[in-house]
Design a binder for these strands. Sequence first.
DNA 1: GACACTCCCGAAGAAATCCTGAAGATGTCC
DNA 2: GGACATCTTCAGGATTTCTTCGGGAGTGTC
Lengths: 264, 264
Amino acid sequence: MKPCILLIEDDSDMRELVAGHLEHGGFDVQRADDGIKGQALALQYGPDVILLDLMLPKVDGLTLCQRLRRDERTARIPILMITALGGTKDKVSGFNSGADDYLTKPFDLEELMVRVKALLRRSERAPLSSKHNEILSFGSLTLVPERLEAIWFDEPVRLTHLEFELLHCLLQRHGQTVAPSLILKEVWGYEPDDDIETIRVHVRHLRTKLEPDPRKPRFIKTVYGAGYCLELPTGDQIAALEPVMREARAARPAQARAKGGQAA
Amino acid sequence: MKPCILLIEDDSDMRELVAGHLEHGGFDVQRADDGIKGQALALQYGPDVILLDLMLPKVDGLTLCQRLRRDERTARIPILMITALGGTKDKVSGFNSGADDYLTKPFDLEELMVRVKALLRRSERAPLSSKHNEILSFGSLTLVPERLEAIWFDEPVRLTHLEFELLHCLLQRHGQTVAPSLILKEVWGYEPDDDIETIRVHVRHLRTKLEPDPRKPRFIKTVYGAGYCLELPTGDQIAALEPVMREARAARPAQARAKGGQAA
DNA sequence: GACACTCCCGAAGAAATCCTGAAGATGTCC
DNA sequence: GGACATCTTCAGGATTTCTTCGGGAGTGTC
């Protein structure tokens, strides 16, 4: 039985290119060229995965995504969003409408294939959001569990598993100081042990990846004798910080952030 | 069991938008369109979180917030304040009247979600300052155990553990003279020893952080031969003192208050 | 005013906590 | 096995916080 994929994309060239590749890869592909038809087809066929372009006529991708999530019949279908990153912040912060993964144009067809298969695999073993596999967004930060990535001021930052969990833990308690014991329980699953040293190292790694100047943390603050506290910018602060972030990134080699991160 | 949220907002469009999103996110939402109804519903339902708009007919948000805090039955419900103004002034005065978190319009619905969930999680947080976990407020002073901070005349002041405990101890006995032996027992856990010298130093630190002129204490007074006594301004005195505080802060380098405090 | 007592100040030592850099340990992929 | 990424552990140093101490100022009593 071939897995069924719903492809919602208005540009016909792109649509046929992608659809052809998927069909050649052994998938059944349903096509839609706007949001309305997309929603109808999603209900009609109950596809295994939905590929959703962000820019769509009639109903845009974000709205459609939310609608699909709201409807019980389509709520648990994995959605892969296709977008042009680096545009307005609204798009990035809009990932929270319930997508499971994303892909930026232009993308490699093989990479698309890999991601679709990953989504299919995941929906088999983890029927619903068992832990956190939903995209979570807050201001200038977006966490994408599917690819262990943080989109931070419009640029993807690769994280390790523990770094991701740690950041997730702090984000869930944004503005609050989180005690080491709680972090250990949530991220490591430890009990009343106190291996605080390990936390420190991972916090440092997060800082080198996110902070403009890791020596003087702006966002991941430490509260002496109490724990760590995440303080993300909101509203106007985001726009005000953008030049700072850009400059900091230009100063540091990009590879130090994207790949090595801590060792380099 | 769904967590219950009380949403107090006069603008009906905004109210339904937020309420819908929260309900979709798995919350029970009670709605109120003015301060009076809001207070009534808070008592009736005992919600887990209260979303409170600042601009309200009948009773404004700040006043309502203070009232809710004063009433034993609603005192420990987390309050998330929503306002159109982004000025930090309003923000801290929001905290000052007892709010736990703060959001400015326009805000991202997902961000609201994260904050609400963070507030719900508060109960499980590890108490930072050993015993006290709840925001304690009196006039122009608010103690936030969450961050080991005191909001003092609309400006956050970072405290150390002992400073916080000491101030907390004095605030709980506001207007009374607290004997050193009692302070030692409450803050240090000592018994009838007399290490009064240590107390003096910490009182001094508090004074350098809070008093306009630490040499002539206005608020943390010493009662010769008896102990210390906290006397905070009330009512009109607060407004009268604000220019004094502002001037004192401008005269001293900000870093001396926020960071070093005592050593510098 | 002399005296004992209490309190404030500055600073320096002690202790706790945190950061840094780097080295092992482990697991994965080719 | 070797290259690589990740996680943990550790020692040294920097920072923050807490305590202690001597000198001096203030307070109350005789």
